[in-house]
Computed example of a mutant assay.
Amino acid sequence: MAEEKYNDTAEKKQEKKKNLFIEVIAILFLIAGVGWMLSIFFDFSSKIKTNNAQVDADIAAVTSRVAGTIKSIKFTEYGSVRAGDTIVLLDDEEFLIKVAQAEADLEIARANLVAMQQGVTISKSTENATQARLQGNVANLERAEKNYKRFTNMYRDSAVTLNQFDQVTAQLKSEQAGLKAMQSDVATSRSVTKQNQLNIESAKATLKRKEADLAAARLQLSYTKILAPLNGIIGERTIHLGELVNVNQVLAEVVIQNKKWVIANFKETQMEEVKVGQPVDIMVDALGGKSFKGKVSELSPATGAKFSMVAPDNSTGNFVKITQRIPVRIEFTDTPEKLTGIKPGMNVSVEIKK
């Protein structure tokens, strides 16, 4: 009888403990639920957090500026390159021929200019000689006019015969005609000289154009040697020897290592407390949550949806209010040496102190 009473007492105690445990668990769940509900409407944290963030960096696309066949590839995947390093060589035979043609055209233009200049010299000499003969004709005409006047008076006084007077008259007319012809020759010489001078200007312009053609041909030739634009680490290799590449085709991409930042997308309801210059803790997922220091540098002027290829259209009537995200740029304040293990595209979590 005593034993049964003892067993009943033990069972009641055990049941009591079980009920107490259940009540404690229920109270804890109730407290957690109330806390969660309050956290929806009120922010009790001293930090603004988001895990919708990624590391970003400048990635320079190395493109071909001319079409050609790949003759040599000088880089390896994920290898370091320095600005000015040759990474790809294109077949330059065709471009060398174009340079030789441009050089020949330039020599022809120079020779033409020299010939034009010599033509001007010759035409000026001819013009001067014609001008000198014109002066002689003027002097002969003056002498013929004086003879004509003298012989006219003498013929009036019957001092000379008609035949002599006719000879003097004919000489005067001949000198007059000769003067007109020489004046025409002088005008023609001047016209030739002027035309040759115009030809010189045209030849000079042609020479400049041929010099520009040669410079362009040499520039095109230089494009067959494709160089790294900046220091960094080169990405994947997607090209092969003998492949024909087109203008503006991307041959490689160089990831710049000395400049990295984070683009964090905060909820629009968080943006009231986000200010430029605020300190930020950045935790990198791939590095086991290792923390780095940064600061808010820029705030996006619009939500991310506004920059998307297809913006949402809320005018259809099927509207569901969705909390928008606003991109925030965060600059690392740690030295570049400390950021070596951080790669563009890595996921991070950020915390901004209020």
Rank of each mutant, 00 (worst) to 15 (best):
A2D: 04
K5T: 10
Y6I: 06
Y6A: 12
K12G: 13
K13I: 12
K16T: 12
K17Q: 13
K18F: 04
L28Y: 04
V34A: 04
V34S: 09
G35K: 03
M37F: 15
L38A: 09
F41K: 00
F42V: 02
D43M: 00
T50H: 00
N51C: 01
A53D: 00
A53Q: 03
A57N: 02
D58H: 15
A60C: 05
T63Q: 10
I70M: 13
K71E: 14
S72Y: 15
Y78C: 00
R82A: 11
D85E: 14
D85T: 13
L90W: 12
D91Y: 08
D92A: 11
E93T: 03
E94D: 08
L96D: 09
K98T: 07
K98C: 02
V99G: 07
V99Y: 10
V99A: 10
A100T: 13
A102Y: 03
A102L: 08
R110I: 12
A115Q: 07
Q117K: 15
Q117E: 12
G119C: 03
T121Y: 11
Q131E: 08
A132K: 14
L134I: 03
R143W: 08
E145H: 13
Y148K: 03
K149T: 09
T152K: 14
N153Y: 07
D157C: 02
S158C: 03
V160H: 02
L172R: 15
K173T: 12
E175D: 14
L179Y: 05
N199D: 13
E201R: 11
A205H: 11
E211F: 09
S222I: 06
S222G: 04
Y223F: 14
T224G: 02
K225F: 11
I226M: 06
L227M: 06
A228V: 10
P229C: 12
G232Y: 08
G232I: 12
E243R: 10
N248S: 13
V250F: 10
E253D: 08
K260S: 05
W261E: 04
F266M: 00
V276T: 13
V280G: 00
V284P: 01
L287Y: 04
G288H: 09
G289T: 07
F292Y: 15
T303Y: 02
S308F: 07
S308H: 06
A311H: 07
N314S: 09
G317K: 07
G317P: 09
N318M: 03
F319A: 05
I322M: 02
I330H: 02
K338Q: 13
G341L: 15
M346P: 03
K354H: 00
